[in-house]
């Protein structure tokens, strides 16, 4: 597992956001304090501050950061995109990976993901709608994202594509083995493999998305019987 320099990352973050503190917990690092920002969304100036808390897993970025709004301002409601456990709905994991990869810097997480959400929430509070739309909750949102991104017609084709992507990623990890597509080259040199890999998010593990979609398809296919 690659070493993540939490101290160095926090120092760089605190330089820009001085009202934050870092604490060391058992299972994760905790960053808490206040974040203030000034930005523009759809030509409207959005200036705000929030009291926040971040739980950073010790194996970050393998497991993602959980963000909380600690000032009691965002209450649990589906419209607010805040889960009942207090975590903020900061976006699809594959999108977050796309934005933060490859270095997953803390300052990038705060500015691109956290402030990205908070600024949208401030906009929503004022204008009563989310400025860039909302992704559907759960697996439906995941499928919608892939359909749009890869121009795929339905859930089955999304699943097939993701399985192919995941297979290429796993093949890449096989190192100096011969590719089985018939090109005669090593996996790392096969043009077909490389072309498919270009579509994917580097070092993103698609297995969890694949499983979620498979489960979703299964539950949709199972008929529900009326209770006797």
């Amino acid at each position: 597992m690659r070493y993540y320099n939490i101290k160095g990352e926090f120092k760089a973050l605190q330089k820009e956001y001085p009202c934050l503190e870092l604490k060391y917990g058992d299972d994760f690092y905790v960053i808490e304090g206040f974040i203030g920002f000034s930005t523009v969304i759809s030509d409207k100036k959005i200036e705000d501050e929030y009291k926040i808390k971040l739980h950073i897993p010790k194996n970050y970025p393998k497991n993602m950061i959980s963000a909380y709004e600690a000032g009691g301002r965002i209450s649990p409601a589906p419209d607010n995109h805040r889960n009942s456990d207090g975590t903020l709905c900061t976006g699809l994991p594959v999108e977050v990976a796309r934005i933060l990869a490859p270095n997953y810097r803390l300052i990038d997480y705060v500015e691109k993901i956290l402030i990205g959400y908070l600024a949208q929430y401030s906009y929503f509070e004022k204008f009563k709608h989310w400025p860039f739309g909302e992704a559907a909750h759960g697996t439906e949102g995941i499928v919608e994202y892939y359909k749009e991104r890869y121009n795929l017609p339905d859930t089955k084709s999304v699943l097939d594509f993701l399985k192919m992507l995941q297979s290429c990623i796993q093949n890449r990890q096989k190192g100096y083995k011969r590719c089985r597509c018939g090109c005669g080259k090593l996996y790392k040199n096969c043009k077909r493999q490389r072309k498919i890999l270009k579509y994917g998010q580097k070092s993103y593990d698609y297995l969890s998305d694949i499983k979620a979609i498979e489960d979703w398809l299964k539950s949709a296919a199972t008929p529900s019987y009326p209770s006797c």
């Binding site: 974040i35 903020l88 709905c89 909302e134």
Partner: peptide
């Protein structure tokens, strides 16, 4: 109230809110 400076941030590639 703690005076929290408001840093100027450009949002170029925003992620839509989503949760499980």
């Amino acid at each position: 109230r703690k005076i929290v400076p408001k840093k100027s941030v450009v949002l170029s590639d925003t992620v839509k809110p989503w949760s499980l």
